[in-house]
Design a binder for these strands. Structure first.
Lengths: 349, 349
DNA sequence: TAGAGGCTGGACAACGTTGTCAGATGGAGG
DNA sequence: CCTCCATCTGACAACGTTGTCCAGCCTCTA
């Protein structure tokens, strides 16, 4: 009558819907609680025979150690959080993956969340992660005031900002050289004879957008070219707005002969506009694109290394976690100009 | 002498390097532990004056409730895990994002991890998440034996598989219609006059790859076209192998006049090969690509809706979590053929 | 045979929170 | 002035784990 036998044993085991605990395992194996703990953690001091009995009970009950409880006891959760802008953006894929790889190498799990470029949501997410007691936080800022993280950082949450600097607090940050990259990209267009060059970028409150615009201005100033207001357009990166902005620059008596685009989303839309445009217009974009080399002409871009950004940030985070905390630092990674044709077109007029 | 005063208070407060707890807050506010809990959770039955004192102490100490501990008491962790193949793959970005949005709507945080197509790593990751007591798991299988998850599922971890079915267990799964999609894509090529059609896909042990091959075979059989062994190539999707495979099919006395590619990585490489190829070769790819419409010719694809895949899976997971668990179900989402030119090229000979 | 010493196993507290329950306090009514 | 009730507050146990510490047992030696 195995059924009754089983039923007779169960009461000491798992309650329905609940997972068995070490206590249940101990009861079933007829040993003490701590002995189960020792077996589960491979600690010495358990007879092979006892160990066998415990293992058997573990198997039979389907026990798995509750790491949440473990963590409560131990102090560290071995998990970190990544707050980024949009998990679906191809730029952030490699970045997340790089962070994940570093985390994995440190036996750490990764929470992932998107702020959708909403400062409030960023804060909500970051604080929820802190409440879960992540050991560290990698944040791609959406907002420009991160004082809300100050108590957390002080309390030991290793925090590193990536892609954009934090606002109103001192903390580690890993950036691309947005200014220098944009400047060299625009200089590249100037070197190919362009003088009327448009700039279409993201909302000016976003640091990267502002920096890239600054690079654009600097390159123009270096060349002694006065910039017309109508050549610059900053705002949301939805296709409709970008399309309008591009078409505006390309019309009128003195249209631009080249466009510098401030990020991958803008670049894609502008490529579409240019494909329908009668005149040949040069283009250099910030951020690389997957098929950029296969278009006609190939798209010349200022490429950032998203994976390096993520890796550097995560490594910095773990260094902070492992050793004595170094002073906050600003790390800037170089960009790379990749020429593929669109940036080398001569002015059309 | 505010300094000594502060120092006199501190001992009851946070120990160095540790976060203040409710106990610390209670001590500082001169109230009981439970009262702090009540304030933190907005429970009724606290005088405004008491509440003010507690709030003050919370501010002063930088207290934040430890949700890990809370969870231990409560039973649910309000977190789910997503095990996918590669966070950096553009196909999985929208999928993750969709899962995240659904999770967010349920006040749930998301753990994210990549298996890198390694069954062992998938298992390690999934079990680590179970040990953290995630409420549920969304898994894109890398392996073909998921019996290791049986005890977890039985213990209440709501589990949904996506993109590929689980191996050797019964569970919810959300799939694209890989067979039907491939079949219609190949039929499309046949309708445009092709008879010698190549297929380049991922490793045959991957379910989606096998299904798409099956669709290819079915379409060919429907048209009464015998398939030559040399027209089919399954294996790793690294560019070198795919390039070799494509070049082989395109050479010899009877080269293929069209190629059907089994996923986005393969498609990209084949586009590169075809760009250098003297003859016009038709192409239909499985999975959409960001700039597919801008290439010359535009790339005809069988598109799956990655976001819908993720959303459907996550919704299923939460339904299972909320209500009474429904029987495991297999949900298949339709694909869509998007014609852009490359699939409508006539045979070159 | 007794004492020393090594090994195994278990009782107990603690991690930070919440639920239960009982105690304290204050005001109203007899 | 005393009692009763409502309201507010706090002590305590519990969640599942690990670290500390001590008890029991066995073996070896004097």
């Amino acid at each position: 009558m195995p059924d009754t036998a089983r039923r007779a044993e169960e009461p000491a085991g798992a309650r329905y819907g609940n997972r068995p605990t070490m206590k249940d395992v101990a009861a079933r194996a007829g040993v003490g609680l701590k002995t189960v703990s020792r077996v589960v953690n491979g600690e010495p001091g358990v007879t092979p025979e006892t160990e066998r009995r415990v293992q058997e009970a573990i198997e039979a009950l389907g026990f798995r150690r509750n790491d949440s409880a473990r963590v409560l006891r131990k102090g560290r959760t071995s998990s970190i959080g990544l707050v980024l802008e949009d998990l679906a953006d191809p730029f952030y894929g490699p970045l997340s993956r790089a962070v994940e790889e570093v985390a994995r190498a440190h036996g750490t799990l990764l929470f992932n969340g998107s702020s959708a470029e909403d400062p409030e949501r960023e804060q909500e997410l970051a604080l929820a992660l802190c409440a879960r007691r992540v050991d560290g936080l990698v944040v791609i800022p959406a907002g420009d005031d991160h004082r809300y993280l100050e108590p957390e950082i002080k309390a030991g949450v290793a925090t590193v900002f990536v892609d954009r600097p934090p606002g109103r607090i001192e903390a580690d940050v890993v950036l691309s050289d947005n200014y220098g990259g944009a400047r060299s990209g625009v200089a590249h267009l100037i070197a190919h004879g362009h003088r009327r060059i448009g700039f279409i970028g993201d909302m000016p409150r976003i640091h990267t957008a502002a920096e890239r615009l600054r690079g654009y201005r600097a390159a123009m100033e270096d060349a002694g070219i006065p910039v017309a207001e109508s050549w610059m357009s900053l705002g949301a990166t939805d296709p409709e707005r970008v399309r309008r902005a591009a078409e505006e620059m390309l019309s009128g008596p003195h249209p631009v002969t080249a466009i510098f685009t401030g990020n991958n989303r803008v670049t894609v839309t502008v490529i579409r506009v240019l494909a329908e445009h009668p005149r040949r217009v040069a283009l250099v974009g910030f951020d690389d694109l997957e098929l950029a080399d296969l278009l006609k002409p190939g798209v010349t871009v200022v490429a950032q290394d998203a994976a390096a950004l993520g890796r550097t940030a995560a490594e910095r985070l773990f260094r902070r976690l492992d050793g004595s905390p170094p002073a906050p630092e600003r790390i800037e990674l170089p960009t790379r100009l990749i020429t593929r044709g669109s940036g080398e077109l001569p002015p059309a007029d």
